[in-house]
Design a binder for these strands. Sequence first.
DNA 1: ATGACTTAAAGTCAAGATGACCTTTACATG
DNA 2: CATGTAAAGGTCATCTTGACTTTAAGTCAT
Lengths: 252, 252
Amino acid sequence: MYTNAANVTERQFVPPSLAISTVIFALRPSVTSGRPTLWLPLVRRIRQPYRGKWALPGGPLARSESLVEAAGRNLKETTQLEPGYLEQLYCFGAVDRSPAERVVSIVYWALVQAEAAAMAEETDNVRWFRADGLEELAFDHNEIVEYALWRLRNKMEYGSIAYHFLGDRFTLAQLREVYEAVLDKRLDPANFRRQLRGARDIEPTDEYLQGGRHRPPRLYRYRPEPAAAAGSGGADHQTQSNGVKHVRSDQH
Amino acid sequence: MYTNAANVTERQFVPPSLAISTVIFALRPSVTSGRPTLWLPLVRRIRQPYRGKWALPGGPLARSESLVEAAGRNLKETTQLEPGYLEQLYCFGAVDRSPAERVVSIVYWALVQAEAAAMAEETDNVRWFRADGLEELAFDHNEIVEYALWRLRNKMEYGSIAYHFLGDRFTLAQLREVYEAVLDKRLDPANFRRQLRGARDIEPTDEYLQGGRHRPPRLYRYRPEPAAAAGSGGADHQTQSNGVKHVRSDQH
DNA sequence: ATGACTTAAAGTCAAGATGACCTTTACATG
DNA sequence: CATGTAAAGGTCATCTTGACTTTAAGTCAT
């Protein structure tokens, strides 16, 4: 298995190879119900091990890039999208997670606005899957996706990340649909509204969305955060500083 | 800086070296007030870079050990203690966090029961420091400790980790002192009691602590958790399964 | 032995948050 | 112009939270 001539003690501390992977979430209308559901892109493995299986997008860490940058590169290479939200998830390093070679994977998770182009951008080796009921993936990637889902739901209940699934203007109903899709439960529209009035980081605009067969809903936007915000909820580190990127197409 | 003969593209993907470090917290009575305060052990660097500076205990990852195991080894080597609680904190990988060499550090954090032997076990190169107001440490270790503190406090408010600072029997007052020390604010004893009655994982025994100049308080214990517990609060991954070790000196 | 002192343990009360539900408003459509 | 639909705002009972009070059960000094 180890073919080089190094002795045991030298070999013992040969660094394991390091990989960066990214779990990318987006919302897409369900084929059946039309309601938004969670999807994520996977790439087909073109070499052993697990050749032919689907896996999280990832790759090695370039010497000149930070961890987030590497994850952002993953993201862009597989989805052609800029990340709306990008945060470190966890570092996976069980000894046997890859056969033969020892691999430590630093995994990030991201939220993107699906819509438009990117979703159509499926090639033979990149495909979007529904986040629930995934088939068997390469390595321990099922476990990783499960954990990312857990974290997403957890963060959704406290933090303010739902916005990143949406454009820069949205109605409360749209925002509520995001919560409902991710948490997989219905929320009372009235109570939902009340809670968001208390949220400091959401702001009503004086625009309304026309075109529905009902009273036109007011459009809201994510508050352009005044300056440095304290860490709330279960936020993860770099998140507060350089880990998060907001994609704002800056006003309309 | 890079002296080997590899060409640029090869060099670009030479894996960075990987290190495991551990932030170890324990409570120790303040020298002045006698109330418990947070302490952590640091080791003095005996080589460049940052020679002579204090740093988090850490080292390379052996090929045969998982990440948690490596962190547990750190812990044992520096404190001679078994971890009461051990969880992954974050993975730090900024390009310039170490001069010259690129190092990615996977950092764990641990809680131990100070007491007894271990605290005395200070050598010339291992010393315990108060967690607040640390001097300037090697690398980005100040930042790491700050983040670990943030996470500790955060987890303390939701999860059930305070127990790990204490022995297997404790009074509510002792437990409250732990909270007060970590969160750095006073808590109402009556309300504290009420909240813990609701907590599923703390159990009254029928023993009482004698010897105070007041009514003897009942002793409680951490519930020997029946089986698999769902992940609460902002728990981190492996935490729920193999990441956590409970040290129980099993009854008295 | 008695009373002073100290903390444990339990209870009270008002303010705030939450979930279930109702009413009114303002559009589109036929 | 009536009707349907969802927005927006409100009510009410329940639960939770923080501040505070009362009673219990020991030790200690006299």
